[in-house]
């Protein structure tokens, strides 16, 4: 194994102390499902790892009134089994079930998934469409960053080297859903994903919507243009959705001819995928089961 030093922090105070001491000479390690791969790949060298895996105070899912809080070290397996999230953030709950495999999910944490800001991170679109607020801590104190300003690019977030993610907070959104398309079911990284939080009237007309796309470019993005175009649209009509959505979602997604991560898919194919996934996620979010997609798939 490549060489590294390791210090274990048992509390948030110990962790921010260590971050202040080592600064950009260190990396946090939580579940390790990504960190250890970076070390093996030789992408992280001569580092001190700050092991935060067993900081209990950063673990847990809480519902207070209509506000949901998720600690940064909450494991994906805790998320997929959470009744609170099943009801109040089904998009995130569903994303956790699509994440790698159960064994990875027993270790991987939501804070790690966001902190690594991988192009294909499965929780990112859901947190974006939930409009979550990220609480970041350092020795200097606490600050809050909206999810929409958190992700800067592959491996880069608004977190400074001396800071760490403590928790995510968002309002309950029972009408939300996440859809992902991978090359196969097992352990497939997402080729494209879409998360939608939606409000429709009793006729199925969109009143309010937030859309976020995964693997949409170098990072997951909020699709503001598509959101505007979808207001007033009849969710039951394919044509009514497809026209505005397919046209404008291109403006939200970074134009990238050569996709990252090898020659996966062309830019055009990704745009198509994200449009279709968004349509399906919107219906699933609004009506629960996506009856209309089922017909389509049959």
């Amino acid at each position: 194994m490549k060489d590294f030093k390791l210090v274990t922090a048992k509390t948030v105070d110990e962790a921010v102390e260590a971050l202040a001491k080592y600064g950009d000479k260190c990396k946090l390690i939580a579940g390790g499902t990504d960190a250890m791969l970076m070390i093996r790949d030789g992408k992280w060298n001569n580092l001190t790892l700050i092991n935060i895996r067993d900081i209990e105070e950063l673990r847990g899912i809480k519902l207070e009134g209509d506000t949901v809080t998720i600690g940064a070290l909450t494991r994906l397996s805790d998320i997929e089994h959470s009744d609170v999230l099943k009801e109040h953030a089904p998009c995130l709950w569903g994303a956790a079930q699509l994440f790698a495999d159960p064994t990875n999910r027993h270790s991987a944490t939501i804070g790690g998934n966001v902190g690594r800001c991988n192009t294909v991170g499965d929780t990112l679109p859901s947190l974006l469409c939930l409009d979550a607020v990220v609480t970041i801590v350092s020795k200097e104190g606490e600050r809050e960053v909206p999810m929409s300003e958190m992700l800067l690019g592959p491996g880069k977030t608004a977190c400074e080297p001396n800071e760490m993610i403590a928790k995510f907070t968002f309002k309950s959104q029972p009408n939300s859903a996440y859809m992902k398309f991978g090359r196969r079911k097992s352990m497939a990284l997402s080729m494209a994903g879409s998360a939608v939080s939606i409000k429709v009237d009793d006729k199925g007309i969109v009143e309010d919507i937030r859309i976020a796309a995964g693997n949409a470019g170098p990072k997951a993005v909020r699709c503001y243009n598509a959101e505007k175009a979808m207001i007033g649209v009849d969710l039951k009509s394919d044509k009514a959705i497809e026209e505005p959505l397919y046209k404008v979602i291109q403006d939200d997604i970074a134009p990238r001819k050569k996709p990252r991560l090898g020659n996966w898919i062309s830019g055009e194919y990704r745009r198509e995928l994200i449009s279709v996934l968004t349509k399906r996620a919107a219906r699933k979010a609004a009506f629960g089961e996506c009856m209309l997609c089922k017909q389509e798939e049959a």
Binding site: F4, L6, T8, I29, G31, G32, T33, M36, L37, R40, L49, N51, R53, D54, S77, D101, P102, T103, N104, H106, S107, M187
Partner: peptide, 30 residues
Amino acid sequence: CGIAECSACTVLKGDRSIMSCLVPAVAADG
């Protein structure tokens, strides 16, 4: 594989399966 691909290294932590090739032994203290 050593890179979280094959799960041949799986052990249980409590009742949960984890990949032991991804855990620095120090982090498993206790």
